[in-house]
Simulated scan of single mutants.
Amino acid sequence: MTTRRTVAVLGATGSIGGSALDVIARHPQRLRASVLAAGSNVDALLALCRTHRPDHAVVADESRFAALRDGLRAAGLPVRAHAGAAALDALVAGEACDIVVAAIVGAAGLDSTLAAARAGKRLLLANKESLVLAGELLTAAARAGGATIVPIDSEHNAIFQCLPEGRVDAGVRRIVLTASGGPFRGRSRDALVAVTPAQAVAHPKWSMGPKISVDSATLMNKGLEVIEAHHLFGLPDDRIDVLVHPQSLVHSLVEFVDGSTLAQMGLPDMRTALAVGLGWPRRIASGVCGLDLLAHGRLDFEAPDPQAFPCLGLARQALQAGGTAPAVLSAANEVAVSAFLQGRIGFLNIPDLVADALAALPAGAASTLEELRAADAAARRHALSALPRHAP
């Protein structure tokens, strides 16, 4: 008899949260959403509670607690309302769930991710910043707690699937992350000067939030994934490569010492990676169709353009520097992307602002969460103060 697993979906109102809930709902005998967490969108969270009937609902914004509590009562739902980071951490670390889908965007998702890792949960990790900001701390917490990390980024999930038991062994020569190239693939640096936020968030293959979409357009997304891959799979920078693959059908590749290369392929739909994590080590239906290679016809690969998309190189620079440098990179990028989406800086000012922060804030020790948070805060302060210098 299959044991029914309970799942906490953090970032439930976002695109990854929605995909996770879609997969969970397809397997009512195997999976149940027991905890739903959102930032401040109480109306969307209430709608999800009506559909999925969790045991607990959490809103990060404590000022929205009353609205959540009263909305649940008005709907006649026996769902317990919670608010704030401490409440969420306690739920993911306790008996409210077996599996945690960590899909809170940005550094805000770090505490709950660490709490789940320390508690030994199966952690479906879709929060890049947890690994970029605190990769060493998170992987150490997972080892100590006995947690299983299943990456949900399509690229890292592909590598996870290609590796024996999801782990690198002595037979692995290198891993290759694929990148769609985003909406501006093939454009020169000069052609990117007048790019608008609307153009940058219009990803040709994936349906994602605005911040992640801009990161894909700058290739910072891929740079962050190189740092993530280093922590997830324990490989140095020179054994992690990137190829642009516009069809987004080959999600990543693993090359072995015997000359074999394994690739994971599939349609660009996050539900596949989520189904791998939710069902691991078994395969379960995701709702995604199989891949018809005849219909797609061809697979193309090309090298990324470092002049037009310098963010990939900046991320490698931060990885090589180590310590707090990746935290500075991530925080400065968040400030820069937010400013771009608000129309305060141009598209090419994003890497300029990140490079400015990396140059101004040399890498320091990163042995504690306090040191990493201090570096994150310093990078945000610096990037905000530098915005006027990088305004178009």
Results as ranks from 00 to 15, higher is better:
Ala308Val: 09
Ile284Arg: 08
Trp280Lys: 02
Pro310Ile: 08
Gly290Met: 11
Pro304Tyr: 09
Ala315Gly: 10
Ala308Asp: 00
Ser286Gln: 04
Ala308Glu: 00
Arg316Met: 06
Phe309Thr: 02
Ser286Leu: 09
Gly287Asp: 02
Cys311Tyr: 06
Gly322Ala: 15
Gln320Gly: 08
Leu319Lys: 04
Gln320Ile: 12
Arg316Trp: 05
Leu319Asn: 03
Leu278Met: 05
Leu278Tyr: 01
Glu302Tyr: 01
Gly297Arg: 15
Gly313Trp: 04
Cys311Arg: 05
Gly323Lys: 10
Arg298Val: 15
Cys311Ile: 08
Ala295Glu: 02
His296Met: 06
Gln317Arg: 15
Ala285His: 11
Leu278His: 03
Asp305Cys: 13
Gly287Leu: 10
Pro310Gln: 06
Leu294Ser: 07
Leu312Ile: 11
Arg282Asp: 09
Pro310Trp: 06
Arg283Asp: 01
Arg283Asn: 03
Gly322Leu: 14
Arg298Trp: 03
Pro306Cys: 15
Val276Asp: 01
Val276Pro: 01
Leu293Ile: 15
Ala321Glu: 06
Glu302Gly: 13
Ala321Pro: 00
Leu294Asp: 00
Gly322Cys: 14
Ala303Pro: 00
Leu293Val: 15
Val288Cys: 13
Cys289Pro: 12
Ala318Gly: 08
Gly287Trp: 04
Asp292Gln: 10
Val276Phe: 08
Leu314Trp: 06
Leu319Thr: 01
Leu294Ile: 10
Ser286Cys: 12
Leu312Val: 12
Gly297Thr: 11
Gln320His: 11
Ile284Gln: 07
Trp280Gln: 01
Pro281Glu: 04
Ala321Arg: 14
Ala315Met: 06
Ala318Gln: 07
Gly279Arg: 02
Asp300Ser: 15
Cys289Phe: 08
Asp292Leu: 13
Pro306His: 14
Leu291Gly: 06
Gly297Glu: 03
Cys289Val: 13
Gly313Asn: 08
Asp300Glu: 10
Asp292Pro: 06
Leu312Asp: 01
Ile284His: 10
Phe301Gly: 04
Ala321Ser: 11
Val276Ile: 12
Arg298Ser: 13
Pro304Val: 15
Ala285Asn: 05
Gln320Thr: 14
Ile284Asp: 04
Cys289Gln: 13
Asp292Glu: 06
Asp292Lys: 11
Leu312Asn: 04
Ala303Asn: 00
Pro306Ala: 15
Leu291Phe: 11
Gly277Ser: 09
Gly322Phe: 14
Leu299Thr: 11
Asp305Arg: 10
Gly313Phe: 07
Leu314Tyr: 07
Trp280Glu: 00
Arg316Val: 03
Ala295Tyr: 08
Asp305Ala: 14
Leu294Asn: 04
Gly279Gln: 02
Leu294Trp: 10
Leu293Asn: 06
Gly322Glu: 09
Gly287Gln: 05
Gly277Cys: 08
Asp305His: 08
Val288Ala: 13
Trp280Asp: 01
Leu299Glu: 00
Ala315His: 05
Gln320Pro: 00
Gly322His: 13
Phe301Thr: 03
Leu291Pro: 04
Asp300Tyr: 04
Ala315Pro: 00
Asp292Asn: 15
Gln317His: 15
Arg298Glu: 05
Gly323Cys: 10
Leu314Thr: 02
Pro304Asp: 07
Asp305Phe: 12
